[in-house]
Design a protein around this nucleic acid. Structure first.
Length: 491
RNA sequence: CGGGAUAUAGCGCAGUUGGUAGCGCGCUACGUUCGGGACGUAGAGGCCGGGCGUUCGAGUCGCCCUAUCCCGACCA
């Protein structure tokens, strides 16, 4: 019986995959590139969902739901949106099956061909804007601040659990505004919500910034994003918020009468985060013993393991543990008493570490005798004997301490893996040998960015808000530049 | 869509020159264990991805499908 989690240093992607599967988060599905989220993984997603949902509602948004299927013609209405999304989509062409006339099995009934194909949504801008057209006549109908929790499908050629699956769960906010200023404000507001969620709940430090034209969402005027660094030094785009200008309003002919009685197109935003956040969470904190979950999102925050060899002993321990469990629960903590009798304590310890449970309390004869508990924290793996009268407060504080500690650790890691490069040689060397974020000058053109991408596989992750201005020369072309931007290889 | 690989028990794999299927883990029962991934004994579990062919005989050889994985192009 071995844990068989590959070491991070040896093969990062294998380590990641192993962890996702062994920790009971997800499996590869029988359907190509899709995933099965297991209950434990889903519990984490549910916690993320609940926190985000509350944050959206606190910023004035409401939930709604739109169709899974989108008529093909909707996609041809916004020109650049077609470019970006017309390709890798699942397409429904028929609506009926029949028994195979030549033998056994079921075949598609060719007589049941759809007049117009339906596209399984890769994102919902088009169907939502088609709907908004009917909702908006006057400035009094604005703003519309709607969010949708849904699944979407993008038929990617290369897939990876959580990071890029063919089907994934996400939320997409779609807002409509009377003015450009208000829409832009909304775009910034939501990227700030994402950043706050990432840092305060996921304990993942992120950089907020704006995407370059190359990396911009298809159909957007501007794309804001949060970028996180994984433990292999690669960047992960963790959330985006788009200012769509009037592009979709024009494409779907959504006009409103302003206060002044003038007819104008409405201004739009869209923003989303997905189950990819699960990947970020895993890759940002976990170690070779398994997951390390931030207490604020852990499905189980405290696990209590009894150590005993006779049934009476267990009963005795349970008697001592139950009041503690209740006390901790009354403080809002989720506590599990792991009294499974077919497993040894050592096995349970390893399993709870694999699952990333922040705090483990062990209770055995020794503790009963001394009136103590053994408390182990997942982030540092340190163990401490705590007197019974201090245990509740200790465990409560430890939750906050772990939350803070793993954030600090990730922040430190990012700082240690962020470099400046002033020449192209230096730039490439850092990418190959150290990885991480490279701050470098760039001449501001798409052509140069594409060139650098082709030559080094690094892309501009974002231009951070409040980026310091600095005179310099583009590392690739030598042309003048006014600021450094963040380059990195990414997922 | 190119290039490579794989498909055998729930999972991970072995299976020689073709002779009718095995190992480890897990699972079930009982017993001993229990402060860092225990052990013994006894069990259960397989249309060898699908189809066609070669052969007395195919997990093994040939052809054709299909699916999955890895590397590219694409991407939250």
């Amino acid at each position: 019986m071995a844990k068989e989690i590959t070491s991070r240093e040896e093969n990062y992607s294998q380590w990641y995959n192993d962890l996702v599967v062994k920790a009971g988060l997800a499996d590869n599905s029988a359907v190509r590139g899709c995933m099965v989220i297991k209950p434990y993984g889903y519990a984490i997603w549910e916690n993320m969902h609940d926190v985000l949902d509350k944050m959206f509602k606190n910023t004035g948004h409401q939930n709604a739901y739109f169709p899974l299927f989108i008529p093909k013609s909707f996609f041809s209405k916004e020109a650049s949106h077609v470019e970006g999304f017309a390709k890798e989509c699942a397409v429904v062409t028929h609506y009926r099956l029949k028994n195979d006339p030549n033998g056994k099995g079921i075949v598609v009934d060719e007589d049941a061909k759809l007049e117009e194909e339906l596209i399984v949504r890769p994102t919902s801008e088009t169907i939502i804007w088609n709907t908004y057209k009917g909702w908006i006549q006057s400035y009094r109908d604005l703003p519309i601040l709607v969010n949708q929790w849904a699944n979407v499908v993008r038929w990617e050629m290369r897939t990876r659990l959580f990071l890029r699956t063919a089907e994934f769960l996400w939320q997409e906010g779609h807002t409509a505004h009377a003015t450009q200023e208000e829409a832009i404000e909304e775009t910034y507001k939501m990227i700030n919500v994402y950043a706050e969620f990432a840092e305060k709940y996921m304990a993942v430090p992120v950089i907020k910034g704006v995407k370059t034209a190359n990396e911009r969402f298809a159909g957007a005027v501007d794309t804001l994003c949060i970028e996180a660094m994984m433990q292999d030094g690669k960047a992960l785009q963790s959330g985006t918020s788009h200012f769509l200008g009037q592009n979709f309003a024009k494409a779907f002919d959504v006009k409103f009468t302003s206060k002044e009685g003038k007819l104008d197109y409405v201004w739009a935003t869209s923003w989303g985060v997905s189950t990819r956040l699960m990947g970020a969470l895993i890759m940002a904190h976990s170690d070779d013993n398994g997951l390390v979950l931030p207490p604020k999102l852990a499905p189980i925050q405290v696990v209590i393991v009894p150590i005993y060899n006779k049934a009476e002993q267990l009963a005795f321990i349970a008697e001592k543990v139950m009041p503690l469990k209740k006390q901790l629960e009354s403080l809002g903590l989720t506590v599990q008493f792991d009294d499974r009798d077919n497993l040894k304590p050592g096995f349970k310890f390893a399993e709870h570490e694999l699952k990333g449970i922040p705090v483990r309390i062990a209770v055995g004869p020794r503790d009963i005798e001394n009136n103590t508990f053994e408390v182990a924290r997942r982030d540092t793996l340190e163990k401490k004997i705590v007197p019974a009268d201090q245990i509740v407060e200790y465990v409560k504080n430890l939750q906050d301490e772990i939350q803070q500690n793993i954030f600090n650790k990730a922040l430190k890691f990012r700082a240690e893996h962020t470099f400046k490069a002033d020449t192209y040689e230096e730039f490439k060397q850092i990418l190959d040998e150290k990885g991480g974020f490279v701050l470098a000058h760039w001449d501001g053109t798409s052509e140069t960015e594409t060139l650098i991408k082709e030559e080094t596989k690094a892309t501009i992750r974002c231009i951070p808000f409040d980026n310091p201005k600095e005179e310099g020369k583009c590392i690739r072309t030598g042309k003048p530049s006014t600021q450094r931007v963040i380059f990195a290889r990414s997922y």
